[in-house]
Design a protein around this nucleic acid. Structure first.
Lengths: 122, 122
DNA sequence: ATATGTAGCGCAAAATTATGCCCTATTGGC
DNA sequence: GCCAATAGGGCATAATTTTGCGCTACATAT
């Protein structure tokens, strides 16, 4: 475990929220679990750009923060399922809104990117 | 400017949204500008934990992404004001919800932190 | 003369986050 | 016997983000 050198301050709400959903893949994981993709291997297939390791770490942190719950089935090969807690469910309005907002403004964003590329090439 | 070594993929909306509001101080800046704190020096006073440098960088990025607009008054000493664009205003439901969520669950979060500390000390 | 307030960039270092590789363990299929 | 799939941890490294220090420039106040 990495131990912070600079202590975090949780003065405003935003600092708490970003502590919890700030990880690169966390909002995605929350949304996917909400969609019913609840087994680690399925999550990995749903996020091919994230490494297995990265996903495991994010899952552990989400669990520590009480956002998701882990059910281990005592079978072989191992079977694990994650579900949103009622606390985690409260986050959905935010994570889903983030997903929506990004999709809504994708074109605008892409145009901006192209503009930048042109500038860079000149 | 830092140049990415690994190209970002903007497949899902979340990746676009986090690219834009992912910076440590960006959601805070957006909310503060919305509250009327629009001059760089006032923003710095409102975020004493953020360095001047950090705030400047985040402001530049927000501007590049079309979230805020910069008005430079040709006076001395210099005067600058930032305002949300109509595009940036669309982000408020998200950033304000994040602030609200964190405040709502602050106690729960703090209890979790204390629990962790106890565990760590044993 | 000197300090303060305004705004902001360059550069290097520090802090943090994310990844890649290798390891364990067991069942079932070929 | 060997490979794939299941789940996940340890460790070192790479990538990225954030900070700190120093610098510019001018006007006003002390």
């Amino acid at each position: 475990m990495y131990e912070r050198k600079i202590e975090r301050h949780y003065c405003c709400g935003l600092e708490i929220t970003t502590e919890i959903i700030g990880g690169k893949w966390k909002p995605t994981i929350i949304n996917l679990i909400h969609e019913g993709i609840i087994r680690p291997s399925d999550l990995q297939r749903a996020m091919p750009l994230a490494s297995r390791r990265a996903i495991n770490i994010q899952l552990n942190e989400l669990q520590e923060h009480g956002i998701i719950e882990k059910k281990i089935y005592p079978v072989l090969p191992p079977k694990v399922e994650y579900t949103l807690t009622e606390f985690g469910t409260c986050l959905l309005p935010i994570t889903l809104a983030m997903e929506e907002w990004g999709n809504k403004y994708r074109e605008r964003f892409n145009k901006l990117l192209e503009l930048k590329k042109e500038e860079a090439s000149q």
